[in-house]
Design a protein around this nucleic acid. Structure first.
Lengths: 227, 227
DNA sequence: ACAAAAGTGTTTATTCTACACCCATGC
DNA sequence: GCATGGGTGTAGAATAAACACTTTTGT
């Protein structure tokens, strides 16, 4: 994901089924690793990405005819890197805007779109923004980031308030230099946590609030739930 | 799921790895079916459940040592039946409360707990209650159902209002007879839809609301997203 | 008439949006 | 000083929790 639009890293297939089309990085599961270990290994090997800030299971794609030949069951993942990192990627890979994908191999377009939708949903009720943001950022940069990811404008004013109220933003005390056109220098913030947490656990039917010990259970509940 | 507590259908293993322990129904994926077709077939074959009102992927469990011997990758599902159906189940299967499971085989307890948490979360921001409720029901019965599923009391008064405001409840016009102790007869309701829909799409950062055509995208977005 | 259960009205609290206004900087 | 962007104050809307009150039944 980079700049002003959600992007996905694809690589151009050199082998015969669907030569030349773009496909998601991945590969076979080894007998001694679980699926998450596997996808992290695949990414580290095939494309140079160590900066993964978030990885989560998306869904299993298992249509018998999703690839030519014997059926292959795929476990799809959503993996995120901060928008400001531009990892060295091999020759045959490139970032593509998820809203205008090139010709993809197999069912990979459907997978990408599922991942996009999952990301957009989670941005609204988790702190998942941390995975896309640099370590330090201005509110307006963050607003641009959310706007790009969600596909519609998110007001910096309200973003600040909502994320602050939820205790997700920590002011660093520093400020960014103002641009050449002037303007007040922007304060720099970081996200308070580096792992995903659910910030809006229950839309309705909240468990009885007085008890403070219930809160942890609540949090755990949706966090698992919405995997 | 039955009566006043969430229940899960387990069957007692007759074969050697973990003989006598309780395990989730399931089995091998055939080469000509996808995972959802497979789980529906397994359930139809092994235990007599045709009344599944909702089925969704939960997660892949793939730890190399989750079962003895060669590694088996499992795709876990959440499947729901209305609380008022009591399907004919074979001798070696039984319903167990999810909050006090018997000794389970392999990692099946973890799977059940994940499913429970997913269900609880989705009850709060989707219409998933339809999958647990009978075709017609009173508000207080529904309240009992939500209370049992969520594990804490849900007020019938507010449940009525929230679900009505969201357009999920349809009054049937009929009323249920009042109990022997008297009391006003309760009105009967049904759920408006028989498929899962997200009713509280975005917690924050709502897309610009005026445009009516955006709503469908919004809805689709989270519905996919939170699968 | 009275108890019991269902349903409605009303108040309050919380949370987000919208928009006006103030602040700090470069030119 | 003034344009430019950043930040805050405040009012309004929406939603839901809590609780009192009314309605409809059986005995």
């Amino acid at each position: 994901m980079r700049y002003d639009t959600l992007q996905v890293l694809l690589w151009r297939r050199a082998l015969d089924p669907h030569v030349g089309r773009w496909s998601l990085p991945g590969g076979r599961l080894r007998p001694d690793e679980d699926v998450e270990t596997s996808i992290r290994r695949q990414l580290a090997e095939k494309v140079d990405i160590q900066q993964l800030t978030h990885v989560e299971q998306l869904a299993v794609f298992s249509d018998p005819y999703r690839v030519p030949g014997p059926r292959v069951v795929a476990t799809a993942f959503l993996g995120l890197v901060p928008w400001d990192v531009d990892p060295e990627v091999p020759e045959d890979t490139a970032w593509h805007p998820v809203d205008s994908l090139p010709r993809t191999a197999f069912d990979h377009e459907a997978i990408v779109l599922r991942a996009r939708d999952r990301l957009r949903a989670k941005l609204s009720y988790t702190n998942l923004g941390f995975a896309l943001a640099p370590r330090e950022f201005t509110i307006s940069a963050l607003s641009g980031l959310y706007s790009a990811a969600l596909g519609y404008r998110v007001s910096a004013t309200n973003l600040q308030r909502v994320l602050s109220r939820r205790g997700l933003l920590v002011p660093t005390g520093c400020t960014a230099p103002s641009g050449k056109a002037g303007g007040r220098p922007a304060a720099l913030y970081s996200f308070a946590h580096g792992d995903m947490q659910v910030t809006d656990p229950f839309a309705v039917f909240k468990p009885p609030s007085p008890k403070p010990d219930k809160r942890s259970r609540t949090r755990a509940a949706r966090s698992d739930a919405v995997t």
